[in-house]
């Protein structure tokens, strides 16, 4: 009898222990390396690396497309992101605005294709690459305000949190998980409340009791978490 009970207690204890360990280590990790999603075929293969990629120091005129980019800020084209919850796609007008003056590439097949759409006044049917479920409402504006405008992070870094290293891609590919736990893992982290140079960010976001700023024990910087109620993203 005793032996039997001992065994069952041991078994149950083992089960509970391993279960809770598994649950605890299930915490999704914030992927840093590229874990590329499927390649999406777009109507025009837009070369992000050429537009946003780093300049090649050996090629000051930027003539060799295979070598370097032009370091165009993401927000130069994706202007909606800082003004709206949805990032949208820049209007065709934007592409043409520059390209009508760049004669050197005027006859490249992709540009020819681009002008075909423009002449027909037809919108380009881009495919969505980062397509969240319809009941998820990510707010681009808020994140850009928080990290680019207020915390002075470089745009490409801030966008890259979720979009990955787009400047090295041709057609953008999804590189982060974008699952809810992945989002939440970042919101559960303490982010500095002050910008790098010590500029205080307006007393926004941290009124909520849940997210009152705390002084981090590690580096003494005032930090706070992102909002955590469901109705921020699902409504």
């Amino acid at each position: 009898m005793h032996r039997f009970l001992r065994l069952s207690f041991m078994l149950m204890g083992l089960l509970v222990a391993s279960g809770s360990y598994a649950a605890d280590t299930q915490k999704p990790t914030l992927t840093t390396e590229d874990d590329l999603g499927p390649q999406v075929t777009q109507p025009i293969e837009f070369p992000h690396y050429r537009h946003a990629g780093l300049k090649n120091p050996d090629d000051p005129t930027n003539s060799d497309p295979s070598k370097g980019g032009m370091e165009i800020d993401c927000q130069y084209c994706h202007t909606y992101a800082r003004r709206s919850a949805v990032a949208g796609i820049p209007p065709l007008q934007k592409c043409i605005g520059c390209h009508q003056n760049i004669e050197s590439v005027r006859n490249k097949p992709r540009i020819v294709e681009l002008f075909k759409y423009w002449d027909a006044k037809k919108a380009i049917p881009w495919k969505k690459v980062h397509d969240l479920p319809d009941f998820v409402r990510f707010n681009h504006e808020r994140h850009i305000k928080r990290f680019v405008e207020q915390q002075n992070r470089p745009t490409q870094e801030a966008c890259g949190y979720c979009h990955g290293d787009v400047k090295s891609m041709t057609v953008a590919r999804r590189s982060k998980s974008l699952a809810m736990g992945w989002c939440a893992s970042c919101h559960e982290k303490n982010h500095p409340v002050t910008a790098e140079g010590g500029t205080p960010i307006g007393n926004q976001a941290y009124w909520y009791k849940f997210q009152k700023p705390v002084v981090a024990s590690s580096d003494g910087v005032v930090k706070a978490q992102g909002p955590n109620d469901c109705w921020h993203c699902h409504k």
């Binding site: 305000k145 307006g202 926004q204 409504k235």
Partner: peptide, 12 residues
Amino acid sequence: RAAEVTAKGEGR
């Protein structure tokens, strides 16, 4: 939420 986000961005 839209109003809160706008206000947050303006620090009020």
